[in-house]
C-alpha cells in the first residue's frame, strides 16, 4: 500500500447529531487505515468534557459558561427538532432500535482506533474550559497543529 492517507475533521458544532456524524466519519476513516484527527473547537469542545462535575478555579463569566454548556456529547441538544429536550430522547430511542452506537461509545471507539482527539486551546480559553474538565488521552493544540495534520489530508471536513 502507498503512504498512509489522512482524514482531518474540524468539529465546531456542539449538536449531538453533528458530533455523531463527525465521529462516524472519523471511525470509518480509521478503518480505511487513514491517520485521523478531530480538531475540537468552540462548541465541539463540549464533546470532550467529562461527565462528572469538575470545579477548577474560574471567573464568574467562566462559571456561567460552564453551567450553560453540556458536559459531554450525551447531554447535547440536536440541531433540528429539539422540542425542548424531547428531540434528543427521541433520536436516542430510534438509534437504539437501529443499533446505532451512542456518541459516547463512538468517542471511546475513536480512542481505541488511535484517532487523535485535538482540543483547541485558544477556544478553551474563550469558553473558560480547563484541562481537568476534559477527558484523558487527548491532545492540545492550535491552528498550526491542525494544519500540520491536515496539509496532506485526503479528506478535510468542517462540521
Amino acid at each position: 500500500m502507498s503512504e498512509k492517507k489522512s482524514t482531518n475533521i474540524i468539529l465546531f458544532s456542539g449538536d449531538y447529531d453533528k458530533v455523531m456524524a463527525a465521529y462516524i466519519i472519523a471511525n470509518g476513516a480509521a478503518a480505511y487505515d487513514h491517520d485521523v484527527t478531530i480538531f475540537h473547537t468552540f462548541w465541539g469542545l463540549n464533546t470532550l468534557r467529562k461527565d462528572e462535575k469538575v470545579q477548577p478555579k474560574k471567573s464568574t463569566m467562566e462559571k456561567m459558561f460552564a453551567k450553560m454548556m453540556p458536559r459531554g456529547a450525551e447531554k447535547m441538544p440536536i440541531s433540528n427538532m429539539q422540542f425542548l429536550g424531547m428531540g434528543p430522547k427521541m433520536i436516542k430511542k430510534v438509534m437504539k432500535k437501529h443499533n446505532a452506537m451512542p456518541v459516547s461509545d463512538l468517542v471511546e471507539l475513536a480512542k481505541e482506533q488511535d484517532i487523535t482527539l485535538l482540543a483547541c486551546t485558544m477556544t478553551m480559553d474563550l469558553l473558560g474550559l480547563k484541562k481537568e474538565e476534559l477527558m484523558d488521552g487527548i491532545e492540545y493544540g492550535g491552528v498550526a497543529a491542525y494544519i500540520a495534520e491536515g496539509e496532506n489530508g485526503a479528506v478535510n471536513l468542517f462540521i
Partner: peptide, 9 residues
C-alpha cells in the same frame, strides 16, 4: 445487526 460504521470497523 450492526449499524454504520461498525461493519467496516
Amino acid at each position: 445487526g450492526l449499524a454504520c460504521p461498525m461493519p467496516i470497523v
